[in-house]
Design a protein around this nucleic acid. Structure first.
Length: 468
DNA sequence: TTTTGAGTTGTTCGA
DNA sequence: GTCGAACAACTCAAA
């Protein structure tokens, strides 16, 4: 008698190093891979049409990978308990295998499912699962550096052998695969969904003597270079296993030729640990989704028209505006730019970080409740291990430092293409004559600054002092 | 329980 | 141009 199981896919859109899938294969002859489109998520204020398009592309790619192994993806829509119960009846599956998830929404959903149906939770979207990194008194860490030390003291998780040959043998008599009409991924979005693409990107980043991971220390903050791995959208949907990514980075440390290379790879690994840190924080403190982790109340001003200018990239600060255009057009933003734009919103404009958090979630392909919330609260100075409140980014000097020639700015703000280098970070300082020659008149082709940074800085300092 | 050292990513000012 | 201090105490983690 052959046994059938459901592999419930959530944010683990991959076949390699998939612990839930492997566990299902170990105990069953037939596997039903199922993805459930939960319409509650589509209606959420945090939803992003482009992220959904990326997800559907990822599912198509997963389906292509399943075919040679006699597997077939079942795509369903609705409420998970209902969908899974129906599927278990029609298929006589005995067990559901799934990777745990940690957001408050996912947590509520999963507790409901396990109360009604047999589920085995296997694996984790973090490298070290939440709950595994605790202080000696059993409490969670809320400061990164000690967390990271304890994290690194744990045995590195293994990457299971690839089971690319084992067939899934999905039963035939199920609802046919359906891919409802979804907005397609826009052409200018430079991310192709899927496990293969993720693997190629990882290899390009970590493999070989001169690979980018060894340049990471210097290159990671340059807006005008591709110094980061750009793996975040793939990690977001589990198109690649975080354990595999970590193990590959560790191997590159082994291969490092000198201490500087080793240090660069370690710096990059640190970013993976930050990702785990915020997954753990959200798991232990779900309230961070509602509001500040610390600081009772910052007196936000929440000016709607300034918020609109920020969203559209019309603040008059080129590095801020270029970054906001990059987000809108590509669904991704450089990490340095995330800090600059977030600092500008929360400190210069004194707008509630939750407004910015929501906007980022609506546009980022990698938009993830844990990392996004952690990043915003860090910049706003309200988070677990937050930046001190007096750390306020200067959008002009940040631009000069991290985009010295203005090529990042010119790429996303074509109106500034002919502005001389001397004025590229402060176009409003251009004399009339130069404005005319550059074809960029301030107030017409490009906005004047919506706020004076130096005055805004002083205002933020006193507002935050008050909130203390 | 008390003490001690430390804490992702910055900016500005004055010597 | 370079450099160190101030920004502001506060809380955390570990001994």
């Amino acid at each position: 008698m052959s046994q059938t199981a459901i592999w419930w896919i959530r944010r683990d859109l991959r076949l390699q190093d998939n612990q839930a899938l492997n566990a299902a294969l170990e105990a069953n002859q037939k596997i039903i891979p199922v993805f459930i489109m939960d319409t509650r998520l589509l209606d959420s204020p945090y939803a992003s049409p482009q992220r959904v398009a990326f997800l559907f592309d990822g599912l198509r790619s997963l389906q292509a990978g399943l075919e040679p192994r006699r597997g077939r993806l079942t795509l369903q829509e609705g409420e998970p308990v209902a969908v899974l119960s129906r599927l278990m009846e029609t298929s006589s599956a005995r067990m559901i295998y799934a990777e745990p998830d940690y957001s408050p929404f996912a947590n509520r959903r999963d507790r409901q499912v396990e109360a009604e149906l047999p589920v085995e939770w296997v694996g984790s979207p973090a490298i070290q699962p939440p709950g595994s990194v605790l202080k000696s008194n059993g409490e969670p860490y809320i400061v990164f550096t000690p967390f990271s030390k304890a994290w690194q003291a744990l045995p590195a998780p293994g990457v299971p052998a690839i089971r690319s040959d084992q067939p899934l043998d999905t039963p035939e008599n199920l609802d046919s695969l359906l891919f409802p009409d979804q907005p397609a991924l826009q052409e200018q979005i430079p991310f192709m969904a899927g496990e293969l693409e993720a693997k190629q990107r990882l290899n390009a980043f970590v493999r070989g003597a001169g690979s980018p991971i060894f340049e990471y220390t210097q290159a990671r903050n340059q807006l005008d270079q591709e110094g980061t791995s750009q793996l975040s959208p793939y990690l977001r949907f589990g198109m690649i296993s975080p354990r595999r990514v970590y193990s590959a980075a560790r191997q590159s440390i082994q291969a490092a030729k000198n201490p500087a290379d080793r240090k660069a790879a370690e710096t990059w690994i640190n970013e993976l640990i930050w990702r785990d840190f915020y997954i753990h924080i959200l798991h232990h403190f779900p309230r961070v989704r509602q509001g500040n982790f610390r600081m009772q109340s910052v007196p936000w001003l929440n000016d709607i028209s300034q918020f609109t200018a920020w969203k559209n990239g019309e603040t008059g600060y080129p590095v801020v505006d270029a970054a906001m255009r990059q987000l809108l057009q590509t669904g991704w933003m450089h990490n340095r730019a995330r800090m600059i734009t977030a600092s500008f919103l929360t400190k210069d404009l004194l707008i509630d970080w939750r407004w910015g958090e929501r906007w980022f979630m609506q546009h980022l392909l990698d938009g993830d409740p844990a990392s996004n919330n952690g990043g915003w609260q860090w910049t706003a100075g309200t988070g677990t291990d937050a930046a001190p409140y007096f750390r306020i980014f200067n959008p002009i000097s940040q631009g000069q430092r991290h985009d010295p020639k203005g090529s990042f700015i010119r790429r996303w703000l074509p109106k500034l293409a002919s502005v001389p280098d001397q004025f590229i970070h402060e176009p409003s300082k251009m004399p009339d004559e130069i404005q005319r020659r550059a074809g960029c008149r301030i107030g017409k082709d490009y906005p004047a600054p919506i706020i004076d940074h130096h005055a805004a800085r002083e205002r933020a300092l006193s507002a935050y002092r008050q909130a203390h």
